[in-house]
Amino acid sequence: QKPVSAYALFFRDTQAAIKGQNPNATFGEVSKIVASMWDSLGEEQKQVYKRKTEAAKKEYLKALAAYR
């Protein structure tokens, strides 16, 4: 399975908490809140997710090379 983006990892980590705080929110509303949070996130915090994405990408490429 291809690795997901840094934003997708952040979304996955954040979505449940947002939904818990806003139980009646639609998926679209939750998405807007998470997107706003991502935009206001500091670069250092974004780097945490970007590093996770890079590590997953390297593992994916290694597994793909081994498969071929």
Results as ranks from 00 to 15, higher is better:
64 L>S: 14
52 K>W: 02
42 G>F: 00
59 E>S: 08
19 K>W: 03
27 F>E: 15
30 V>N: 00
42 G>N: 14
15 Q>K: 09
38 W>S: 00
42 G>K: 11
42 G>A: 10
34 V>W: 00
16 A>V: 05
4 V>N: 12
21 Q>L: 07
11 F>P: 00
11 F>V: 08
40 S>C: 04
45 Q>K: 13
10 F>K: 00
19 K>Q: 13
38 W>N: 01
8 A>C: 15
24 N>D: 11
1 Q>V: 06
42 G>S: 14
6 A>G: 08
34 V>Q: 00
66 A>T: 15
36 S>C: 05
14 T>R: 11
9 L>S: 13
31 S>L: 02
5 S>I: 00
19 K>E: 06
15 Q>S: 02
22 N>Q: 07
53 T>N: 09
32 K>R: 11
7 Y>S: 04
29 E>Y: 04
67 Y>G: 15
36 S>Q: 15
15 Q>M: 10
44 E>A: 09
34 V>Y: 00
5 S>E: 11
67 Y>L: 11
53 T>E: 15
45 Q>P: 02
55 A>M: 11
25 A>W: 03
2 K>I: 12
27 F>P: 15
39 D>R: 12
42 G>M: 02
32 K>V: 05
8 A>N: 08
18 I>G: 00
58 K>T: 10
4 V>H: 07
60 Y>S: 13
58 K>Q: 13
1 Q>G: 14
23 P>L: 01
66 A>I: 05
64 L>Y: 08
21 Q>F: 03
41 L>M: 14
22 N>R: 11
44 E>Q: 10
9 L>R: 03
24 N>W: 03
61 L>F: 07
23 P>I: 03
2 K>L: 04
29 E>K: 02
25 A>H: 05
12 R>H: 13
28 G>S: 12
12 R>S: 09
63 A>H: 15
49 Y>C: 14
38 W>G: 01
32 K>G: 05
17 A>D: 08
68 R>H: 08
58 K>V: 13
26 T>D: 13
25 A>Y: 10
65 A>C: 11
35 A>S: 11
59 E>P: 10
42 G>E: 12
8 A>S: 12
24 N>Q: 04
2 K>T: 05
15 Q>P: 00
19 K>V: 09
18 I>K: 00
14 T>F: 00
23 P>R: 03
12 R>E: 13
5 S>N: 14
42 G>L: 02
66 A>L: 12
56 A>Q: 11
1 Q>M: 14
25 A>S: 05
44 E>P: 07
47 Q>W: 09
